[in-house]
Design a protein around this nucleic acid. Structure first.
Lengths: 228, 228
DNA sequence: GTCGCAATTCAACGGTCGTTGATTTCTGGT
DNA sequence: ACCAGAAATCAACGACCGTTGAATTGCGAC
């Protein structure tokens, strides 16, 4: 069946490399384990987060990620068991750091300035990465089949679950999803579409503009009676 | 250079088909032009819109689109010049039908119910396709490199450009981008993430919930003085 | 009735992707 | 000093992708 079965010709020696002394540390890749203490795993995670953010899940190839990290593509399999595992670790896990963020939001002031704290906290965090954290999530999520579930769980777990339960008012889940729609939309316009003037507005301006509506979703009147 | 140059062996006859009479219309593919009046182009467009919506640009393969349309993959090249052309026609062109939509929104009532008309019109349109129109756009846009530009132009051209100019108030572009953030976020939560209870709420409820905030963005007080 | 042309199918190509197995090199424990 | 094992590179594999060119068939003009 296999067309090539024979001598397994090796084309390795085309480099004509007579580097018997391995002094050169720049690009001369030795063969085996690396000498110093270089964290290949962390380099891969960083490169993966960048490329998933720019290209999405399908667009970011394992080869490109490994090249940016300066290592061999095979290391993705060695450290993460494959592209899926790398994606899960790089994009779906770390970048939220839930306890710290939630403390700031929930215990940072009275409930009638909650919307303000939510907007300020997330825009500040998203801006720190140049929008990369947000776009990585959206771009990658949009290309995988478990997109909806992943996004839903992430928002519920880190963003709104705790907030909704803290509200202790009527229609907590409805208020939470409305709140999510405004925050996700803000991220889409500011980072993914880069729609002006909202994309370049500074953080206090964005807070002043968006927080009132968020606060209305959280504690205001929903006038559901007009609909039902 | 070419490894196989010889007899060009044909494996066509593995089907063992003795269908001398081509009565069967179900799966028996003849070779040349099709007999009836079947619109291959339209079938490809429909299938492409579905698959781009489900899988995004990279995930939806030409072969899969052609299979769903019931034709040969080569027809994508024949009719659209390649995958890019099919994507442009199927996703980036038709589904908005701008004149009709904009007439409904702009000339459908007074300016202080503009937010209501915007929400109702777009949610109605998006719901008609099961969210496919919206998700096709977002999913595909997220995977292409001209993502930001395409989304920006689309929103500006069909959604907000005319609306902003119709406002004739202060900070028209800022109001337009705020408006866009709420509408895009609504689509993300309702269709892409399918976040409950907003995903299953009926149209009047969604309108009643979201329209007030949209109206505030359009004609309300923006309290920019607090920020600058 | 015939013939040019458009529509369609098919097999194949070159390229790229994610992954693997063999091999080589460094590290840490004893 | 040595050795088991982890870390890393490399070449190759099989699969699949988008695209192409040749062959085949029906339609419509004359």
């Amino acid at each position: 069946m296999t067309p090539v079965n024979g001598p397994r010709v090796d084309a390795r020696d085309d480099a004509a490399d007579d580097e018997s002394s391995y002094e050169e540390a720049g690009t001369g890749k030795r063969r085996g384990r690396r000498p110093g203490r270089e964290d290949t795993r962390a380099a891969l995670l960083t490169a993966a987060r960048e490329l998933f953010s720019e290209q999405g899940y399908e667009g970011a190839t394992v080869r490109a990620i490994a090249t940016r990290a300066g290592v061999d593509p095979a290391m993705v399999n060695h450290w993460f068991g494959g592209k899926e595992g790398l994606f899960a670790k790089a994009v779906l896990e770390l970048p939220f750091n839930p306890p710290e963020v939630l403390e700031t939001i929930l215990n940072g002031g009275p409930i009638d300035t909650l919307g303000e704290r939510i907007v300020r906290t997330f825009v500040t965090r998203w801006d720190e990465s140049g929008g990369g954290v947000f776009t990585a999530l959206v771009r990658s999520i949009s290309a995988r089949e478990d997109a909806a579930k992943a996004l839903r769980e992430l928002i519920m777990k880190y963003l709104l679950g705790r907030i909704a339960s803290e509200l202790a008012s009527d229609h907590a889940e409805l208020r939470a999803s409305l709140c999510a729609s405004q925050m996700v939309g803000l991220g889409m316009i500011r980072y993914v579409a880069a729609f002006e003037p909202l994309a370049s507005a500074d953080i206090p301006t964005v807070v002043a503009l968006v927080a009132p509506n968020l606060q209305h979703y959280l504690t205001g009147e929903l006038n559901l009676e007009r609909a039902e």
